[in-house]
Design a protein around this nucleic acid. Structure first.
Lengths: 123, 123
DNA sequence: TGTAATGTTCAATAGTTCTTGAACCAATTG
DNA sequence: CAATTGGTTCAAGAACTATTGAACATTACA
């Protein structure tokens, strides 16, 4: 594993690439979970998303999320800690991230936002 | 040409499909132009977008925009008039459409939002 | 040093999307 | 009825995307 991977600068973040990233259900679920985590101002590592797919598939989606500027990865020992690039995104596209996340929250039942173990079938 | 094409009901509009539609530069440009047209409360027909691509390619993108619920098509004689499904989208995903359109407007220079004849190189 | 834990990278494959041109359909106009 | 206008549909090809498993790299720890 190389060092901290490359991230685009704020001004390099492009709207079509961001929308392209958010369109995928797995990536939307990742972003959603990162947004939930923002409330307690801490980060999540790759393993926290294991409910969403296999390791290599998740690594693929993490890379896309990094490359489009949606999230940031920090290497710490054998872990990678991730968080949303909230400030950069709000500066580039005001209101977009919040609108997507709140829309996703409203449709949480339809979307597969949570890993299986967290899904509660509100019967 | 058959009659008025099918449109999904409001509750059938899905977030990933909407984001999937908006991610494509041609479709984003179509939506952007429709949003501009909203101000004068009128519609646009297919030919108004000829600067964005060939007829059959545009028809393909129009179909995607209809199927995901972003726009509505009204058949009138030999024309098809289109408009954004603003009310339905605002009800389903509050703030999303506005955030996308205003973000696109800010990046109008980078994105190919306007047909060639309309592009002004602000030198 | 050896082994386990955590993720990434690579190669292969299946599936999807975009684009183009030709053919087609419906409504209008002469 | 024939021609034109405005737009859709179909088929085919190129390009891209997601997914999987195997191999690999780095850190931690006994």
């Amino acid at each position: 594993m190389s060092r901290t991977p490359l991230h685009p600068a704020r001004e390099q973040i492009e709207l079509p690439m961001v929308l392209d990233c958010l369109r995928d259900p797995i990536r939307l679920a990742i972003v959603y979970q990162l947004a939930q985590q923002e409330r307690v101002s801490s980060e999540l590592c790759c393993g926290d998303f294991s409910g969403l797919g296999g390791k290599s598939n998740l690594a693929y989606h993490f890379a896309k999320l990094r490359e489009c500027g949606l999230m940031q990865t920090r290497v710490a020992g054998t872990n990678r800690f991730m968080r949303l690039r909230r400030e950069d995104l709000d500066a580039r596209f005001p209101g977009l991230l919040d609108a997507v996340i709140s829309s996703a929250a409203r449709d949480a039942g339809r979307l597969q936002l949570l890993s299986d173990c967290e899904v509660v079938d509100a019967g």
